[in-house]
Nucleic acid binder design. Sequence first.
DNA 1: ATCCACATGTAAGGCGTTACATGATTGG
DNA 2: CCAATCATGTAACGCCTTACATGTGGAT
Lengths: 185, 185
Amino acid sequence: MEVSPTGYVLLGVLNWGPRTGYEIKQLVDRSTRFFWAASYGQIYPELKRLEGQGLISGESEPRGGRSRNVYSLTDRGRAELSAWMKRPPEIFETRNEGLLKLFLAGGEPAGEVERHLSEMGEHAEQLAQRLRQIQGEVGGEKQAADLLCLRFGIELNEWVAEWCERAAAEHEKEPKAAVFAARGR
Amino acid sequence: MEVSPTGYVLLGVLNWGPRTGYEIKQLVDRSTRFFWAASYGQIYPELKRLEGQGLISGESEPRGGRSRNVYSLTDRGRAELSAWMKRPPEIFETRNEGLLKLFLAGGEPAGEVERHLSEMGEHAEQLAQRLRQIQGEVGGEKQAADLLCLRFGIELNEWVAEWCERAAAEHEKEPKAAVFAARGR
DNA sequence: ATCCACATGTAAGGCGTTACATGATTGG
DNA sequence: CCAATCATGTAACGCCTTACATGTGGAT
């Protein structure tokens, strides 16, 4: 019974109650998107696969002339989700073009390092702001597990923004060339 | 002249000096790996592609009976790298199974939220430690752009570890159910 | 009428990993 | 002699995004 990584996102949100693919996509876009994105091209086929595996079951509940498939978690799906929850997390992947540019900026003209730092910081600040806005919109108890993730995202990005400012200030005083350049050969 | 995302990593490290695919892989594994990974299955074919595009040039420099291709950045490659450096970063992707589990933990038995938080914190602490070790091994000026990234990784992960501890302590006092569960329907 | 939100899907292609295959050299 | 390191590569496959395709219902 192989479930793809993103399959667990679907099992997880269906554990909160029945939903359509469209609704799942909306939920994901204001929540897990920031640490686990999912597109329609993933969601719809994956829902079918999970149904084929008996982990969720879909029912056609049209609204007027609009076709609509509402999926719910089955007992087997709940068991699979629970087993996954107990396993230690394994996937921690990051692809950060800002950091990459900063990393490679040694040897570039003066001021480039500061520019990359300021771009990174700005990005983090903007992200924090978007997350704060979502936080304001959803309200609710700040200790709830899902809102804890929101708080994490906000505070993390605020920290990053501040770090970038500090680093840029420090670097301006005495810029240095790359170090890994010399090593590793 | 299309260059794939990871292609720029190769251009970037070749900007520091000529290297073989093997050497690039080693360098990446102790540096960009934490925010931009690359496998042999990527590196070798990509090097050939970049060479085909005239952005790098490879020379066969066997060591004894061991075949060895040393690549260097060409002028066109330098120009392409420089143009990329000037563009604002666009790729910021994260896939964090720990956060995902935390997010989905609402509705789970009591104590699960704390467990996920402690696992996240532990992971961050271990990562910080590995990075500190690399920092000790490479030494060098702390303001160099590449070592700035290392410092960033260390301090970020230390911050995450502390955040997780704090959050677990706070949550233990008054656990709450999921909030997004109610929203988004 | 027109636009937006609702709603579901597929096809092509990009990017990347894992596993496999091969072989030379060096150090213990 | 054996293990680790140096060194290069390919094939299969998984995962995911983008773009396309299609249609309904409600509000202005």
